[in-house]
C-alpha cells in the first residue's frame, strides 16, 4: 500500500507539471485553434530565467524563499514576454492563412528558441539550486513525499482556482469565451480579439514558466532541451483530456502522470512511453475528442 501511495504521489507530481504546461496548450487551442509547439520552449525559458535571477540574488544574500518568489515572478514576466512576442511575430500575421502555416511557424519558433538558448547559454546541464525549504512536519514521510512535491501540488491547485475564476467570473474571461466560441461574432459585438488572444498567450506562458521553475527546483538541473520532451508530453495530456477544455487538460495530465508512474512501478519502465501512448490511442478510439472534450462538431 505504501508503494502504491508512493507511485500515486510521484505520478501526481509529474501530472501537475504536465498540467501547468498543458493549460497553455489547451487555452491557445481553444481560442485560435493553433497547436503552439513553441510552448515547451517557454517552459524552458522560464526555468533559465529563474536560474539567472537566482544566481544574481544569491550573490546579494537574500532570504531563500524571497529569492524563489522573486525568481518565479521574473520567470513569469520574461516567459510571458516571449509568449506575447512569439504570437505577435509568428502567429498573428498568419491568422487568416491555412491552418498548417501557423503550425509550421510554431515549430520554427520552437527550434529558434531552443537554439537561441543553446547558443546564448550553454549546451551543458546546469545545476538548479533547491530553494524550497524542508518542511518539518514532512520529515517522517521523507521517503514518500518531499516538500518540493507538496509545493508543486499546492501551486498547481492555486493556479487552477485562479484560472477558473478568471475565465468564469471576469469580463476578460467572458471575452475569452466569446472569442473561443466565434471570433468574428465576438469582434462584431465589440470584443478586442487581438487583445484577448495576446492575453491568452501571456497567461499560458505564465503557467508554463511557473511549471519550469517548480520542476527545475524539484529535479535540480536544467538544459536547453528540457522543454521539448515536457512539451510533447503536455501536448499529449491536453489531447487526452480533450484539447480546448481546461479541466480536461488537468485531468489528462494527471491521468498521463499516473499511467507513467504505475506502469513503471508495476510493469516496466522499458515501455513507459509506449504504455502512455497506447493509453492515449485507446482513449481516443472510444472518445475521439478526449476525456472531457466537447463532442459538438467542429465549427469550421
Amino acid at each position: 500500500m505504501d508503494y502504491f501511495m508512493e507511485l500515486f504521489l510521484g505520478g501526481l507530481t509529474r501530472g501537475s507539471i504536465y498540467a501547468l504546461i498543458a493549460l497553455g496548450y489547451t487555452m491557445v487551442y481553444g481560442i485560435i485553434e493553433l497547436i503552439n509547439f513553441a510552448h515547451g520552449e517557454i517552459y524552458m525559458i522560464g526555468a533559465f530565467t529563474a536560474l539567472i535571477t537566482i544566481s544574481v540574488l544569491t550573490m546579494l544574500g537574500l532570504n531563500k524563499i524571497a529569492i524563489l518568489l522573486i525568481a518565479a515572478v521574473a520567470a513569469i514576466i520574461y516567459s510571458s514576454a516571449y509568449g506575447y512576442t512569439a504570437e505577435k511575430v509568428a502567429y498573428k500575421p498568419l491568422r487568416s492563412a491555412p491552418r498548417l502555416s501557423p503550425l509550421i511557424s510554431a515549430i520554427g519558433v520552437s527550434l529558434f528558441l531552443q537554439n537561441y538558448v543553446l547558443l546564448a547559454q550553454t549546451s551543458d546541464f546546469l545545476p538548479f539550486p533547491n530553494l524550497i525549504p524542508q518542511f518539518k512536519f514532512l520529515k517522517a514521510y521523507g521517503g514518500i513525499v518531499q516538500s518540493s512535491e507538496i509545493v508543486i501540488y499546492v501551486t498547481t491547485a492555486i493556479v487552477l482556482v485562479i484560472l477558473t475564476f478568471l475565465i468564469k467570473f471576469t469580463k476578460l474571461g467572458k471575452a475569452m469565451r466569446a472569442t473561443a466560441q466565434d471570433r468574428d461574432m465576438a469582434m462584431l459585438v465589440g470584443v478586442n480579439v487581438d487583445r484577448v488572444i495576446s492575453f491568452t498567450f501571456v497567461v499560458g506562458s505564465a503557467t508554463a514558466a511557473l511549471g519550469g521553475v517548480l520542476i527545475a527546483s524539484h529535479i535540480g538541473q536544467i538544459n536547453f532541451y528540457i522543454g521539448f520532451i515536457a512539451g510533447i508530453k503536455a501536448f499529449v495530456a491536453a489531447v487526452l483530456g480533450g484539447i480546448g477544455s481546461m479541466p480536461g487538460a488537468v485531468l489528462g495530465s494527471l491521468v498521463l502522470g499516473w499511467t507513467e508512474s504505475f506502469f513503471t512501478g508495476y510493469i516496466s519502465s522499458d515501455y513507459e512511453d509506449v504504455f502512455a501512448f497506447l493509453f492515449l490511442v485507446l482513449i481516443l478510439i472510444f472518445r475521439p475528442s478526449g476525456i472531457l472534450g466537447r463532442t459538438d462538431t467542429d465549427k469550421v
Binding site: E6, G10, T13, S269
Partner: peptide, 20 residues
C-alpha cells in the same frame, strides 16, 4: 533490470522501484 527514458521529467517511479 530495466531501461529508463532519457530526458524524462523525473525518475521517482523507478527510484521507488529500486527501493521496493
Amino acid at each position: 533490470f530495466e531501461g529508463i527514458t532519457p530526458g524524462a521529467v523525473d525518475y521517482s517511479a523507478i527510484v521507488q522501484k529500486i527501493k521496493r
